[in-house]
Design a protein around this nucleic acid. Structure first.
Lengths: 113, 113
DNA sequence: GTCGCATCCGTAGCCTTGCTACACATGAAG
DNA sequence: CTTCATGTGTAGCAAGGCTACGGATGCGAC
């Protein structure tokens, strides 16, 4: 998969991973790789800056801890982050439905009223 | 919808529109807007360069014609473009499925009642 | 007649955002 | 002691869509 295509959806992915529990950067990368079946194998140079960006935006918060003598920065979702994630999900659904309309619908029905 | 999210999928969209028949730039923009229910309203500064890029890549071909005294450049899908579109569709499915695994179908990490 | 708008094409440069390449530190294994 | 996995981080590049322009014609309005 062209990693480039992630453009604009990375934040949502990060938020979604953190939604399942606090994690540190390295673990987030592994979670992404595991949950995507190996498709998403993002480099640290992508994740760390993104996490800092998210923290500046107040969507995640971090705390340092020492594990086995190593410093870890553990991130967790803030309330604002949770709301942002909900918005991102809605945005993804719309985006995905729209593009899917052109490239082949494999969309789950959007529950018509 | 954040237009920025299109990153990397615009070419596929253009190819998909052209698959339904040859069109000129302006008409492509309108087709995109119409078929997406108004969600996709792309500026000419996005479409024209993209079309030229596609033409350089040999995925579309253009012919000029004059309609009502106005010059029109009409694009049509080439065979290579058709094959590329098939690949883009496959790529979209994979991408969409991958991201969807995180953002799409609500999969609460906990028990589904 | 001429003003404004829709129709039509096109380019330059910006901006966002992910990626590559690099730098640095510690514990465990050989 | 060297090497690898774990762990965090930055600088600068590259890709690609967007903004802001610029130019031209047909047609209805005033």
């Amino acid at each position: 998969m062209k990693a480039q295509a992630l453009h604009g959806h990375l934040d949502a992915l990060l938020l979604a991973v953190l939604e399942q529990g606090a994690r540190h950067g390295y673990a987030i990368i592994e979670a992404l790789r595991a949950r995507s079946g190996g498709t998403l194998d993002l480099p640290t140079g992508t994740i760390y800056p993104a996490l800092r960006r998210l923290e500046r935006a107040g969507l995640v918060a971090s705390t340092w801890s020492t594990v086995n003598g190593r410093e870890r920065r553990t991130y967790r979702l803030t309330e604002a982050g949770g709301r942002a994630l909900a918005g991102e999900r809605a945005g993804w659904r719309e985006f995905s439905a729209t593009i899917g309309r052109f490239l082949g619908a494999d969309e789950p029905p959007t529950v018509p009223a």
